[in-house]
Amino acid sequence: MALFQETKKSSLTNLMVKSVWPRDRLEFMNVDVEGLAGGLLRIWDPVIFERTECCCSRNFLLLLGKLFNSFDCVLVNIHAPNDIIRKRKFWESLLNLKTYFPKPWCTGGDFNEIRNIGESVGVSLRDRGMKDFNNFINRCEVVDLLLLGRKYTWCNAFDGHKWSRIDRFLLSPEWLEKFKFNQWGLARASSDHCPIVLMEDTRDWGPKPFKFLNAWMLHLNFASFVEHTWSHSQFSGPAGFTLQKKLFALKLALKKWSKEVYGDVSSKLQVIENDLHQLNLKAEIRPLVEEDLKQQREKKNERQNRNSLNSITVGDTIFEEPAQVKKEVWSFFSNHFSEAWKHRTVLVGDFKSVRFSDHFHLLEAEFSKEEVWAAIADCNGNKAPWEQSSWAGWL
Protein backbone atom coordinates (compact mmCIF):
# COMPACT_ATOMS: atom_id res chain seq x y z
CA MET A 1 0.00 0.00 0.00
CA ALA A 2 1.26 3.48 -0.83
CA LEU A 3 0.21 6.97 0.27
CA PHE A 4 1.00 10.13 -1.69
CA GLN A 5 0.46 13.77 -0.75
CA GLU A 6 0.77 16.87 -2.92
CA THR A 7 0.14 15.04 -6.20
CA LYS A 8 -0.72 18.40 -7.81
CA LYS A 9 -2.86 16.52 -10.34
CA SER A 10 -6.40 17.53 -11.22
CA SER A 11 -7.10 13.99 -12.42
CA LEU A 12 -5.23 10.68 -12.36
CA THR A 13 -5.49 7.92 -14.97
CA ASN A 14 -4.83 4.21 -14.49
CA LEU A 15 -1.69 4.53 -16.59
CA MET A 16 -0.30 7.29 -14.35
CA VAL A 17 -1.02 5.28 -11.19
CA LYS A 18 0.51 2.09 -12.64
CA SER A 19 3.73 3.98 -13.34
CA VAL A 20 4.40 4.31 -9.57
CA TRP A 21 3.05 0.90 -8.50
CA PRO A 22 5.18 -2.26 -8.84
CA ARG A 23 2.38 -4.86 -8.71
CA ASP A 24 -0.02 -6.03 -11.40
CA ARG A 25 -3.08 -5.87 -9.13
CA LEU A 26 -4.13 -2.44 -7.90
CA GLU A 27 -6.97 -0.27 -6.78
CA PHE A 28 -6.69 3.41 -5.98
CA MET A 29 -8.57 6.46 -4.77
CA ASN A 30 -7.51 10.06 -5.09
CA VAL A 31 -8.51 13.57 -4.09
CA ASP A 32 -8.10 16.07 -6.91
CA VAL A 33 -5.98 19.17 -6.56
CA GLU A 34 -7.52 22.56 -5.77
CA GLY A 35 -5.77 25.34 -7.61
CA LEU A 36 -2.04 24.63 -7.88
CA ALA A 37 -1.54 22.72 -4.61
CA GLY A 38 -2.79 19.64 -2.83
CA GLY A 39 -3.99 16.31 -4.13
CA LEU A 40 -4.01 12.93 -2.36
CA LEU A 41 -3.56 9.40 -3.69
CA ARG A 42 -3.74 5.98 -2.06
CA ILE A 43 -2.91 2.76 -3.93
CA TRP A 44 -3.39 -0.76 -2.61
CA ASP A 45 -3.42 -4.41 -3.63
CA PRO A 46 -7.08 -5.58 -3.54
CA VAL A 47 -5.97 -9.07 -2.48
CA ILE A 48 -4.30 -7.62 0.64
CA PHE A 49 -6.84 -4.90 1.48
CA GLU A 50 -10.56 -5.02 0.73
CA ARG A 51 -12.28 -1.63 0.88
CA THR A 52 -15.84 -1.41 2.19
CA GLU A 53 -16.37 2.32 2.81
CA CYS A 54 -14.58 5.58 2.12
CA CYS A 55 -14.68 9.24 3.08
CA CYS A 56 -12.55 12.16 1.92
CA SER A 57 -12.01 15.90 1.85
CA ARG A 58 -9.28 18.17 0.54
CA ASN A 59 -7.00 17.22 3.47
CA PHE A 60 -7.66 13.54 4.07
CA LEU A 61 -8.63 10.29 2.37
CA LEU A 62 -10.16 7.66 4.67
CA LEU A 63 -10.76 4.00 3.81
CA LEU A 64 -12.56 1.40 5.93
CA GLY A 65 -11.89 -2.22 5.10
CA LYS A 66 -10.36 -5.56 5.93
CA LEU A 67 -6.62 -6.30 5.85
CA PHE A 68 -5.48 -9.85 5.00
CA ASN A 69 -9.16 -10.93 5.18
CA SER A 70 -9.02 -10.83 8.98
CA PHE A 71 -8.17 -7.40 10.39
CA ASP A 72 -10.87 -4.71 10.26
CA CYS A 73 -9.19 -1.31 10.16
CA VAL A 74 -9.31 2.32 9.07
CA LEU A 75 -6.57 3.77 6.84
CA VAL A 76 -6.21 7.54 6.61
CA ASN A 77 -3.99 9.50 4.22
CA ILE A 78 -3.29 12.96 5.70
CA HIS A 79 -2.16 16.30 4.33
CA ALA A 80 -2.93 18.77 7.11
CA PRO A 81 -3.40 22.52 6.51
CA ASN A 82 -0.49 24.80 7.32
CA ASP A 83 -2.59 27.54 8.92
CA ILE A 84 -2.88 26.98 12.68
CA ILE A 85 -6.59 27.85 12.88
CA ARG A 86 -7.57 25.60 9.99
CA LYS A 87 -5.34 22.89 11.40
CA ARG A 88 -7.12 23.00 14.77
CA LYS A 89 -10.49 22.58 13.01
CA PHE A 90 -8.99 19.74 10.97
CA TRP A 91 -7.96 17.84 14.13
CA GLU A 92 -11.50 18.20 15.46
CA SER A 93 -13.01 16.89 12.23
CA LEU A 94 -10.78 13.78 12.39
CA LEU A 95 -11.78 13.16 16.01
CA ASN A 96 -15.43 13.35 15.00
CA LEU A 97 -14.79 10.88 12.18
CA LYS A 98 -13.25 8.45 14.64
CA THR A 99 -16.61 8.11 16.38
CA TYR A 100 -18.18 7.05 13.05
CA PHE A 101 -15.24 4.78 12.13
CA PRO A 102 -14.22 3.18 15.46
CA LYS A 103 -12.05 0.39 14.02
CA PRO A 104 -8.25 0.61 14.64
CA TRP A 105 -6.74 3.59 12.82
CA CYS A 106 -3.53 3.80 10.80
CA THR A 107 -2.99 7.46 9.95
CA GLY A 108 -0.05 8.56 7.82
CA GLY A 109 1.13 11.50 5.77
CA ASP A 110 2.14 15.14 6.09
CA PHE A 111 0.77 16.54 9.37
CA ASN A 112 2.47 19.93 8.88
CA GLU A 113 3.25 20.04 12.59
CA ILE A 114 5.88 18.86 15.06
CA ARG A 115 5.37 17.52 18.58
CA ASN A 116 8.29 19.20 20.37
CA ILE A 117 11.18 21.59 19.74
CA GLY A 118 13.57 18.66 19.19
CA GLU A 119 11.77 17.80 15.94
CA SER A 120 12.92 20.90 14.05
CA VAL A 121 15.97 23.02 13.29
CA GLY A 122 15.89 26.57 11.91
CA VAL A 123 12.08 26.62 11.76
CA SER A 124 9.94 29.15 13.63
CA LEU A 125 8.08 27.33 16.42
CA ARG A 126 4.45 27.76 17.40
CA ASP A 127 3.67 26.42 20.87
CA ARG A 128 -0.04 26.53 20.19
CA GLY A 129 0.32 24.31 17.14
CA MET A 130 2.43 21.73 18.97
CA LYS A 131 -0.01 21.69 21.90
CA ASP A 132 -3.00 21.17 19.58
CA PHE A 133 -1.21 18.34 17.74
CA ASN A 134 -0.25 16.52 20.95
CA ASN A 135 -3.79 16.97 22.24
CA PHE A 136 -5.14 15.41 19.02
CA ILE A 137 -2.81 12.41 19.36
CA ASN A 138 -3.88 11.83 22.98
CA ARG A 139 -7.61 12.16 22.27
CA CYS A 140 -7.36 10.00 19.16
CA GLU A 141 -5.57 7.36 21.26
CA VAL A 142 -2.90 6.62 18.68
CA VAL A 143 0.80 5.82 19.09
CA ASP A 144 3.59 7.87 17.49
CA LEU A 145 6.27 5.36 16.47
CA LEU A 146 9.97 6.10 16.77
CA LEU A 147 11.48 7.22 13.46
CA LEU A 148 14.47 5.08 12.44
CA GLY A 149 17.10 5.89 9.84
CA ARG A 150 17.03 9.66 10.22
CA LYS A 151 15.84 12.42 12.53
CA TYR A 152 13.85 14.72 10.24
CA THR A 153 11.50 14.13 7.30
CA TRP A 154 11.40 17.56 5.63
CA CYS A 155 14.14 19.92 4.48
CA ASN A 156 14.04 23.37 2.92
CA ALA A 157 15.15 22.59 -0.62
CA PHE A 158 16.54 26.11 -1.18
CA ASP A 159 19.25 26.39 1.46
CA GLY A 160 19.12 23.10 3.42
CA HIS A 161 19.23 24.91 6.79
CA LYS A 162 15.66 24.19 7.87
CA TRP A 163 14.67 20.71 9.03
CA SER A 164 11.61 19.27 10.72
CA ARG A 165 9.76 16.02 11.34
CA ILE A 166 6.28 16.71 10.00
CA ASP A 167 5.66 13.34 8.26
CA ARG A 168 4.82 10.23 10.28
CA PHE A 169 2.48 7.31 10.93
CA LEU A 170 0.14 7.26 13.94
CA LEU A 171 -1.29 3.84 14.89
CA SER A 172 -4.00 2.61 17.21
CA PRO A 173 -2.65 0.13 19.81
CA GLU A 174 -4.47 -2.75 18.10
CA TRP A 175 -2.12 -2.40 15.13
CA LEU A 176 0.92 -2.90 17.34
CA GLU A 177 -0.66 -5.95 18.93
CA LYS A 178 -1.22 -7.46 15.49
CA PHE A 179 1.99 -6.39 13.75
CA LYS A 180 5.57 -5.64 14.78
CA PHE A 181 5.99 -2.42 12.83
CA ASN A 182 9.04 -0.19 12.50
CA GLN A 183 8.93 3.27 10.93
CA TRP A 184 11.86 4.16 8.67
CA GLY A 185 12.82 7.45 7.06
CA LEU A 186 14.45 6.89 3.66
CA ALA A 187 16.75 9.09 1.61
CA ARG A 188 15.25 12.10 -0.14
CA ALA A 189 15.34 12.21 -3.93
CA SER A 190 13.55 14.93 -5.88
CA SER A 191 11.11 15.94 -3.13
CA ASP A 192 11.80 18.09 -0.07
CA HIS A 193 10.11 15.34 1.98
CA CYS A 194 11.75 11.97 2.60
CA PRO A 195 9.66 8.82 2.07
CA ILE A 196 8.40 7.06 5.21
CA VAL A 197 8.11 3.26 5.27
CA LEU A 198 6.05 1.32 7.79
CA MET A 199 7.63 -2.11 7.64
CA GLU A 200 7.31 -5.39 9.49
CA ASP A 201 8.91 -8.01 7.25
CA THR A 202 12.67 -8.15 7.87
CA ARG A 203 13.37 -11.38 5.99
CA ASP A 204 16.16 -11.49 3.43
CA TRP A 205 14.73 -12.55 0.07
CA GLY A 206 18.19 -13.04 -1.43
CA PRO A 207 19.72 -11.39 -4.50
CA LYS A 208 17.61 -9.61 -7.09
CA PRO A 209 16.79 -11.47 -10.35
CA PHE A 210 19.19 -10.99 -13.22
CA LYS A 211 18.20 -8.08 -15.46
CA PHE A 212 18.96 -8.21 -19.17
CA LEU A 213 19.49 -4.74 -20.69
CA ASN A 214 18.29 -4.19 -24.24
CA ALA A 215 21.06 -1.61 -24.71
CA TRP A 216 23.63 -4.44 -24.67
CA MET A 217 22.30 -5.66 -28.02
CA LEU A 218 23.28 -2.35 -29.62
CA HIS A 219 26.97 -3.01 -28.93
CA LEU A 220 28.87 -4.30 -31.95
CA ASN A 221 30.66 -7.08 -30.03
CA PHE A 222 27.68 -8.29 -28.01
CA ALA A 223 26.45 -11.04 -30.34
CA SER A 224 29.91 -12.52 -30.84
CA PHE A 225 30.59 -12.35 -27.08
CA VAL A 226 27.38 -14.24 -26.28
CA GLU A 227 28.07 -16.84 -28.96
CA HIS A 228 31.63 -17.36 -27.74
CA THR A 229 30.58 -17.64 -24.07
CA TRP A 230 27.73 -20.03 -24.86
CA SER A 231 29.83 -22.35 -27.04
CA HIS A 232 32.69 -22.49 -24.53
CA SER A 233 30.46 -23.31 -21.54
CA GLN A 234 30.53 -27.10 -21.38
CA PHE A 235 28.46 -29.09 -18.85
CA SER A 236 27.31 -32.69 -18.71
CA GLY A 237 24.00 -33.99 -17.44
CA PRO A 238 20.31 -33.86 -18.31
CA ALA A 239 19.22 -31.23 -20.84
CA GLY A 240 17.39 -29.10 -18.26
CA PHE A 241 20.38 -29.14 -15.91
CA THR A 242 22.79 -28.25 -18.73
CA LEU A 243 20.61 -25.37 -19.91
CA GLN A 244 20.37 -23.97 -16.36
CA LYS A 245 24.14 -24.13 -15.89
CA LYS A 246 24.88 -22.53 -19.28
CA LEU A 247 22.44 -19.67 -18.59
CA PHE A 248 24.01 -19.12 -15.17
CA ALA A 249 27.51 -19.01 -16.68
CA LEU A 250 26.30 -16.59 -19.35
CA LYS A 251 24.72 -14.36 -16.69
CA LEU A 252 28.01 -14.06 -14.79
CA ALA A 253 29.93 -13.40 -18.00
CA LEU A 254 27.45 -10.69 -19.10
CA LYS A 255 27.69 -8.92 -15.74
CA LYS A 256 31.48 -8.85 -15.99
CA TRP A 257 31.35 -7.77 -19.65
CA SER A 258 28.90 -4.95 -18.86
CA LYS A 259 31.16 -3.56 -16.14
CA GLU A 260 34.19 -3.69 -18.41
CA VAL A 261 32.40 -2.02 -21.35
CA TYR A 262 29.98 0.40 -19.67
CA GLY A 263 31.33 0.60 -16.14
CA ASP A 264 29.36 -0.21 -12.99
CA VAL A 265 26.71 2.48 -13.57
CA SER A 266 24.33 1.25 -10.86
CA SER A 267 27.04 1.19 -8.20
CA LYS A 268 28.32 4.64 -9.18
CA LEU A 269 24.82 6.07 -8.95
CA GLN A 270 24.27 4.33 -5.61
CA VAL A 271 27.50 5.84 -4.25
CA ILE A 272 26.31 9.31 -5.23
CA GLU A 273 22.92 8.73 -3.60
CA ASN A 274 24.58 7.47 -0.41
CA ASP A 275 26.92 10.48 -0.28
CA LEU A 276 23.96 12.86 -0.62
CA HIS A 277 22.10 10.94 2.08
CA GLN A 278 25.07 11.22 4.45
CA LEU A 279 25.24 14.97 3.81
CA ASN A 280 21.54 15.25 4.61
CA LEU A 281 22.05 13.35 7.86
CA LYS A 282 25.00 15.60 8.71
CA ALA A 283 22.87 18.68 8.04
CA GLU A 284 20.27 17.40 10.49
CA ILE A 285 22.87 17.63 13.27
CA ARG A 286 24.65 20.87 12.34
CA PRO A 287 24.68 23.46 9.53
CA LEU A 288 26.75 22.39 6.55
CA VAL A 289 30.05 24.19 6.10
CA GLU A 290 31.15 25.56 2.73
CA GLU A 291 33.10 22.40 1.89
CA ASP A 292 30.01 20.26 2.58
CA LEU A 293 27.80 22.52 0.49
CA LYS A 294 30.28 22.35 -2.38
CA GLN A 295 30.32 18.55 -2.21
CA GLN A 296 26.51 18.50 -2.10
CA ARG A 297 26.29 20.62 -5.25
CA GLU A 298 28.83 18.44 -7.03
CA LYS A 299 26.97 15.24 -6.16
CA LYS A 300 23.64 16.68 -7.26
CA ASN A 301 25.16 17.87 -10.54
CA GLU A 302 26.77 14.48 -11.11
CA ARG A 303 23.47 12.69 -10.50
CA GLN A 304 21.67 15.11 -12.80
CA ASN A 305 24.28 14.63 -15.52
CA ARG A 306 23.93 10.86 -15.34
CA ASN A 307 20.17 11.14 -15.69
CA SER A 308 20.25 13.67 -18.51
CA LEU A 309 19.97 12.98 -22.24
CA ASN A 310 22.58 15.08 -24.03
CA SER A 311 22.69 13.41 -27.43
CA ILE A 312 21.31 10.51 -29.43
CA THR A 313 22.89 8.31 -32.09
CA VAL A 314 20.85 7.17 -35.09
CA GLY A 315 22.83 4.89 -37.36
CA ASP A 316 26.18 6.66 -37.81
CA THR A 317 24.79 10.14 -37.05
CA ILE A 318 24.97 11.83 -33.65
CA PHE A 319 22.31 14.43 -32.86
CA GLU A 320 23.01 16.93 -30.09
CA GLU A 321 20.57 19.78 -30.76
CA PRO A 322 17.50 19.50 -28.47
CA ALA A 323 15.04 19.90 -31.34
CA GLN A 324 16.76 17.11 -33.33
CA VAL A 325 16.98 14.83 -30.29
CA LYS A 326 13.26 15.29 -29.56
CA LYS A 327 12.40 14.63 -33.19
CA GLU A 328 14.41 11.39 -33.34
CA VAL A 329 13.03 10.15 -30.00
CA TRP A 330 9.48 10.87 -31.14
CA SER A 331 10.10 9.17 -34.46
CA PHE A 332 11.55 6.04 -32.82
CA PHE A 333 8.71 5.51 -30.33
CA SER A 334 6.09 6.49 -32.91
CA ASN A 335 7.30 3.68 -35.16
CA HIS A 336 7.96 1.34 -32.24
CA PHE A 337 4.36 1.37 -31.02
CA SER A 338 2.60 1.71 -34.38
CA GLU A 339 0.71 -1.08 -36.09
CA ALA A 340 1.53 -2.44 -39.52
CA TRP A 341 -2.01 -2.11 -40.88
CA LYS A 342 -4.26 0.92 -41.12
CA HIS A 343 -7.55 -0.96 -40.96
CA ARG A 344 -8.24 -4.03 -38.85
CA THR A 345 -9.91 -6.99 -40.50
CA VAL A 346 -13.50 -7.51 -39.40
CA LEU A 347 -15.17 -10.90 -39.76
CA VAL A 348 -18.92 -11.01 -40.36
CA GLY A 349 -21.39 -13.82 -40.90
CA ASP A 350 -22.25 -17.14 -39.27
CA PHE A 351 -19.40 -19.46 -38.30
CA LYS A 352 -19.56 -23.15 -37.52
CA SER A 353 -17.89 -24.61 -34.44
CA VAL A 354 -14.32 -25.77 -35.06
CA ARG A 355 -15.09 -28.98 -33.20
CA PHE A 356 -16.95 -30.25 -36.26
CA SER A 357 -13.92 -29.71 -38.48
CA ASP A 358 -11.92 -32.65 -39.81
CA HIS A 359 -8.75 -30.80 -38.73
CA PHE A 360 -9.82 -30.11 -35.13
CA HIS A 361 -7.25 -32.58 -33.79
CA LEU A 362 -4.47 -30.31 -35.09
CA LEU A 363 -5.53 -27.59 -32.63
CA GLU A 364 -4.80 -29.86 -29.67
CA ALA A 365 -1.63 -31.40 -31.05
CA GLU A 366 1.67 -30.83 -29.23
CA PHE A 367 4.05 -28.23 -30.62
CA SER A 368 7.00 -29.57 -32.53
CA LYS A 369 10.58 -28.48 -31.85
CA GLU A 370 10.67 -26.73 -35.23
CA GLU A 371 7.51 -24.74 -34.41
CA VAL A 372 8.93 -23.62 -31.04
CA TRP A 373 12.17 -22.38 -32.57
CA ALA A 374 10.26 -20.66 -35.38
CA ALA A 375 8.17 -18.80 -32.79
CA ILE A 376 11.28 -17.75 -30.85
CA ALA A 377 13.02 -16.56 -34.00
CA ASP A 378 9.96 -14.44 -34.84
CA CYS A 379 9.97 -12.70 -31.44
CA ASN A 380 10.72 -9.01 -31.03
CA GLY A 381 12.21 -8.76 -27.54
CA ASN A 382 11.36 -5.06 -27.15
CA LYS A 383 7.64 -5.70 -27.57
CA ALA A 384 7.31 -9.02 -25.72
CA PRO A 385 5.02 -8.70 -22.66
CA TRP A 386 7.32 -10.26 -20.08
CA GLU A 387 10.19 -8.77 -18.07
CA GLN A 388 13.17 -10.70 -19.41
CA SER A 389 11.85 -10.73 -22.97
CA SER A 390 15.15 -9.69 -24.52
CA TRP A 391 16.49 -13.21 -23.93
CA ALA A 392 14.20 -14.30 -26.76
CA GLY A 393 15.73 -11.64 -28.98
CA TRP A 394 19.18 -13.23 -29.09
CA LEU A 395 18.13 -16.87 -28.53
Score class of each variant (00 low, 15 high):
330 W>F: 15
191 S>I: 07
99 T>Q: 15
2 A>C: 10
365 A>W: 04
226 V>G: 04
212 F>W: 05
264 D>Y: 07
289 V>D: 15
179 F>P: 02
233 S>E: 00
370 E>D: 14
31 V>E: 03
214 N>S: 15
137 I>L: 06
291 E>F: 05
244 Q>H: 14
374 A>S: 13
334 S>H: 14
265 V>E: 12
350 D>M: 12
178 K>E: 07
388 Q>N: 14
132 D>K: 02
291 E>C: 04
264 D>T: 08
90 F>G: 01
388 Q>V: 08
124 S>W: 08
14 N>T: 05
187 A>R: 10
133 F>S: 01
108 G>S: 03
373 W>R: 13
139 R>T: 12
324 Q>G: 04
54 C>Q: 09
48 I>N: 01
182 N>V: 10
20 V>W: 02
87 K>G: 03
307 N>D: 14
300 K>L: 11
269 L>T: 11
70 S>G: 10
302 E>T: 12
312 I>G: 03
365 A>D: 12
304 Q>N: 15
288 L>M: 06
145 L>K: 01
213 L>R: 10
216 W>N: 05
239 A>Q: 14
62 L>K: 01
86 R>P: 02
12 L>F: 04
130 M>W: 05
241 F>H: 14
44 W>G: 00
395 L>K: 11
250 L>H: 02
92 E>W: 15
71 F>T: 03
343 H>L: 10
272 I>W: 08
2 A>L: 11
26 L>K: 06
206 G>K: 07
194 C>M: 05
28 F>C: 01
266 S>G: 08
221 N>H: 11
97 L>I: 11
224 S>W: 02
296 Q>M: 14
74 V>E: 01
114 I>D: 00
232 H>W: 03
151 K>D: 06
341 W>A: 15
215 A>D: 09
148 L>W: 06
74 V>A: 03
